[in-house]
Every structure is written in C-alpha cells, then in structure tokens.
C-alpha cells in the first residue's frame, strides 16, 4: 500500500462545491422533502443546479444569512430537510447565533452547506476566507461537522448529511481539487478513513490537505519514511478509535487542515491524544492569522498549506519521538 503513487500531473480536478451542486440535484430527485436556500450566491455555491431542476423547492433569501438560517429552522420544524448555503464566512460567521439557538439548541434538521472555506478562496482576500468556521461549529453541542476532501467524498457526505437526523455543517471549497477517491470509497459520519499505511508517523488531514498529505507521504516514502495517512472528514463526531490506533502504531502525529490551527482538526486531535495517548504532535494549518488576496496556489504556499510543510512537520515530530 505504501508504494502507491498518484499521477498528480494528470489527476482530474473538481471543486467540492461542484460536486455539492450535483449531489443536491440527485437528492432532490430521491427525496421530495429536500429544500434548498441560498443567500444570493447560488451561482457560486452551485445550489443554482438545484434551483434549475426544482424551482419550487429552491428559495433565494437574498443577502440575509441570519434570516436564511431562521427560515431553514422553521422549514425543518415543519418536516422539511433544508440545505442552506452561503460562503463559510457568512454561513458560520454572520449567522452563528441563529445556528446556535435556532438550529443546534433546537436540535432541528438543518444542513448548513458552506462553500468557499479557507484561504483557497484566493483573490477575494481575507474578508472572505473563513479560517475559523470549524472552530465555531465544532464547539456547538448537537452539531455534526463534515469536511470532505474531494468530489467523490462530497457526494457521499451530502447524502449522509441528508439521511442523518439533526444539524450538520458541511465545509467545502471554491478551488478545483484532485479527485482522490474511486466511486467505491465509503464515507460514514463519525468514521475516519486510513487511506495509506506506514509505521513511522501518521498524518491526519481533511479537506484539500488530504491530497497534500498523500503527496507528502509519497515523498517521505522515497526518503525511507513510511507514513499513515488518515482522512478525517468527520471532524465531529471525531473517530477517536482510529486516531488513537494510528497514534499507537506510529508514535508520532501530524495534522493538516486549511483552517486556523486553533479550534479545528489539529485541536481536536490534540485533545484526544493528550487525554488518552500523548505522542509528539505537530499541527499544520493557518497560524492564527487572517488571509489576503492572491491566487489560491500562491496563498496555500505562503501560508504553509502544502505537502512541503507536511514533510517538514513529519521530520520534526520524528525527531521528538
């Protein structure tokens, strides 16, 4: 398994938001209770696909994210399964207290499907780059938080979110990212997937950092370092068993996420490890700073969200083993 090499140059790339748009249409066909809300960003979040297919079940709420979440709560209270979409900054940030009180506290069946998360938003700059949404959502009781890594997983995440009874936050990106998983890939809520195995260190990643983790693992393998790579798309509930298993097997852990290192995956893994099985840990992520304008690729480079950063992190934790 460790020898696996992905043809990164020719790999197909699809943005997770694109996959979301397609998955919604499929859901709409399968379940008449699915309704979709957007806050004047349907073309960007890709809910426009659903709007076109099911105009009577799509509601543009205008530029009013708080009210969009309130409406979603009411729709859910009356038996609908609403997907509410906007950019992550506005969905999780602007409407945070609506999500807290009208969705999570009320335990309503609302799916908050946020796109344009992280600094890979690019040119729009720091005002539009959510680096804290996962920290906000993860700290809410009742909330399930999912961060798919590619188009295949996004489709499964959307399906799983619709089937699950309760509030879910789904984090997706603007940038086209490599399609890592075949159709037979299996996502389930609360489950992390080991997608590469090695005994020296474990890299636990989610979102677009899963691809970077796999790239890093290949380079490290060539250097004689065998790493396990875990795709932790279910940030909450967190798969503690798998995290502890790979920590025990390798004795050194690196986390990688396109989010502030405060409050996201790195924090979640640190919480589990420090209370149960402390091992050397290094968190790759945005180092408690806002983003800026630039091309997504350059920004990912500048903010240390690359396979190179993960390789250095693995080498660092190995020295502390």
């Amino acid at each position: 398994m460790s020898e696996q090499q992905i043809d990164w140059k020719n790999i197909k790339k699809i943005a997770t938001r694109e996959a979301y748009g397609q998955a919604l249409v499929q859901l709409g066909e399968d379940n008449p209770d699915i309704v979709v809300l957007d806050a004047d960003l349907a073309k960007s979040t890709k809910t426009s696909d659903f709007a076109q297919a099911f105009p009577n079940r799509f509601f543009d709420m205008g530029i009013a994210e708080q009210n969009m979440i309130g409406f979603a709560a009411g729709l859910a209270a009356a038996g609908k399964i609403p997907f509410a979409s906007s950019f992550a900054v506005f969905a999780a940030g602007r409407a945070f207290e609506q999500i807290r009180n009208s969705v999570a506290y009320a335990q309503l069946n609302v799916k908050i499907a946020a796109t344009h998360a992280g600094i890979s938003v690019g040119e729009d700059g720091g005002s539009h780059q959510a680096i804290e949404d996962l920290a906000l959502m993860r700290s809410l009781p009742q909330m399930t938080v999912l961060v798919p890594a590619d188009a295949t997983e996004t489709k499964q995440v959307i399906k799983a979110a619709a089937a699950y009874q309760g509030p879910v936050y789904i984090r997706m990106g603007r940038l086209a990212v490599p399609v890592l998983f075949a159709e037979n890939y299996q996502f389930s809520i609360g489950k992390a997937n080991i997608i590469r195995e090695g005994q020296d260190a474990a890299i636990i990643a989610n979102g677009l950092m899963v691809a970077e983790a796999l790239k890093a693992a290949e380079v490290l393998f060539a250097k004689g370092i065998n790493t396990t790579v875990v795709n932790c798309a279910s940030l909450k509930p967190l798969d503690k068993d798998t995290i502890l298993k790979v920590a025990r097997q390798t004795g050194a852990v690196v986390t990688a996420e396109e989010h502030n290192i405060i409050g996201g995956l790195g924090s979640a893994v640190a919480e589990v490890l420090s209370e149960n099985y402390p091992v050397p840990l290094y968190r790759v992520g945005i180092k408690d700073t806002f983003g800026e304008s630039g091309s997504p690729e350059e920004l990912l480079q500048k903010y240390g969200l690359t396979s190179t950063a993960i390789i250095q992190a693995v080498e660092t934790v190995l020295k502390r083993k």
């Binding site: 079940r57 309130g70 009356a78 609403p82 009180n101 009208s102 506290y105 009320a106």
Partner: peptide, 25 residues
C-alpha cells in the same frame, strides 16, 4: 412549544420558515 426561542428576532424568522413549509406542501 413549536419553536425554541429566547434570542430575540429568531422566532419570527423560524415562524416564517414554517409558513413557507405550509405553502410548499
């Protein structure tokens, strides 16, 4: 109790969402 409330303004927004559900169905 048809909706959890307490944070002002939010109940009205949810009530409107319920009314929209009634219209859809």
């Amino acid at each position: 109790v048809d909706m959890s409330t307490g944070s002002l303004g939010q109940g009205f927004s949810a009530a409107a969402g319920m009314a929209l559900a009634g219209k859809i169905d």
